[in-house]
Design a binder for these strands. Structure first.
Length: 426
RNA sequence: GUGGAUGUGGCGAAGUGGUUAACGCACCGGAUUGUGGCUCCGGCACUCGUGGGUUCAAGUCCCAUCAUUCACCCCA
């Protein structure tokens, strides 16, 4: 049997790749408008980075990493997310000595060994942004605004922003105690996962999807109820700023994100109509992370969004992307000498930034014309023996169906004129 | 890791045990020996996912296996 692509990966080819270009272009523009600069980091890193950065209790580290030993017996992992990498790069390159905060964004493939389903892949793409060195709640509001503004520009509708505060090391202890005593008597009724969470990371029991667990946590203390003064003020201010920007959001006290490094603000964006995996973006504040991986104490916040999922929502809405008006030219030449002339002409057109193609298979005129139609060429330039003898070419407007003759050396000028004219009409 | 669904030519899709496995689209060629989009004609299946089994006979039944897909967990 022929070799096929690994499970959970995809080939993106013409017809679809244009949608990626569309999304990527908007992402770059929004980031640029907000003053974020692109960072590119390695696709693989030391396994230890993710173990420490993402957290040992997470599913990502426990069961989803692509980890292998390289020939030097180093444990290497294909990045499952990029926040840890960005923080590593920040520390390693001493970006903390540059003007703060450092505002970065990235796009690229991530890898997680999971079973696939709608909206879930083993190699998928994320766009994300991170702000390092800024602890003001205004930073939180700005970064959420980046997300919202992108969605506004690409016309994404039907999404909800959920926010929450999961507290900080100061107030987590109290929450943990109160949650423990609340659930103490009913631990046995929790699902298996939550029974182990009870000791390791009880907070996450709150957003367990198991029905029994949801029932048991109906009146359970949320992190919001136990926020320390600092966290509470921070959360209030984030909301205040979001309101100033007239950004709609919902407070979801039970949203506790799966990664260990989050504290204070956490947020998630949900979409409908793309299957069970409805989270299109997630993020939060991670003030202890940079220190955790060996850097100076540095506040940080960021998000990541799944580009496949964004495209899925756009597809669902049938929201398009602008058609690029591309004036393609196909040069149809017959006979060796004409083909040589045509080849030169094709090059000239391309040098003038006109998309031009020529038959490469030595086909007959009919086939070449048919091909010109198939590739939706606006103009066909026909050069045969007769034209060659008269040093002319036929220029056929494929859309209007009429054609004229012009001197061989003025073909380029003629087509440029035509293009200019029709652009003025539009 | 767990559960369900599916697996016929490039794509979509008939086929409910029995001659050379429909059809549509796409692709290639021809009908005007130099001109597209419509029409007509023709071309394009050495594994019906793979391997076993049942049967005189299997794409059609059974088993296994692989793949795809949806869902659970979790996440983007």
């Amino acid at each position: 049997m022929a070799i096929q692509r690994p499970k959970g990966t995809q080939d993106i080819f013409p017809g679809i790749v244009e949608k990626w270009h569309y999304l990527e272009a908007h992402i770059r523009k929004v980031c640029s408008d907000f003053g974020y600069q692109e960072i590119r980091t390695p696709i693989f890193e030391s396994t230890e980075l993710f173990q420490r950065g993402v957290g040992d209790t997470t599913d990502i580290v426990n069961k989803e990493m692509y980890t292998f030993l390289d020939k030097g017996q180093r444990s290497i992992t294909l990045r499952p997310e990029m926040t840890a990498s960005v923080c590593r790069a920040y520390v390693e390159n001493k970006l903390y000595s540059q003007p703060q905060p450092v505002k970065l964004y990235y796009m690229g493939p991530m890898f997680r060994y999971e079973n696939t389903q709608a909206g879930r892949f083993r190699q998928f793409h994320q766009f994300g942004a991170e702000v390092l060195g800024g602890e003001d709640p205004l930073v939180d509001a700005e970064i959420i605004q980046v997300i919202w503004e992108l969605y506004r520009r690409i016309g994404l509708r039907g999404v909800e922003v959920h926010i929450n505060s999961v507290g900080c090391p100061v107030c987590r202890g109290e929450h943990r105690e109160r949650l423990h005593s609340y659930l103490q008597d009913r631990v046995a009724e929790l699902c298996q996962d939550c029974q182990s969470r009870f000791e390791r990371n009880p907070m996450r029991i709150l957003d367990c999807k198991n029905r029994d667990c949801q029932r048991l946590t109906v009146g359970a203390p949320t992190t919001l109820e136990t926020l320390c003064d600092d966290c509470k003020e921070h959360f209030d201010k984030v909301q205040h700023y979001l309101r100033i920007l007239e950004m709609p959001y919902k407070i979801n006290p039970k949203m506790v994100r799966g990664l260990d490094y989050y504290q204070k603000t956490a947020f998630e964006v949900m979409a409908e109509g793309i299957g069970a995996q409805s989270a299109i973006c997630g993020g939060g504040r991670y003030d202890g992370l940079v220190e955790e991986i060996g850097g100076p104490a540095t506040p940080g916040i960021g998000f990541a969004m799944g580009m496949e999922r964004i495209l899925a929502v756009l597809e669902k809405q049938q929201a398009g992307w602008e058609d690029e008006t591309d004036y393609k030219v196909v040069v149809a030449a017959l006979g060796e000498t004409a083909r040589e002339k045509g080849f030169q002409l094709t090059m000239e057109l391309r040098q003038a930034n006109i998309s031009a193609q020529m038959d490469l298979l030595g086909r007959g005129l009919k086939s070449q014309m048919k091909h010109a139609d198939r590739v939706q060429a606006r103009y066909a330039v026909i050069i045969g023996e007769e034209e060659l003898a008269g040093n002319i070419a036929i220029i056929r407007d494929m859309k209007l169906g009429d054609q004229t003759e012009t001197a061989l050396e003025s073909v380029k000028e003629y087509i440029l004129d035509q293009i200019n004219q029709s652009q003025r009409e539009v």
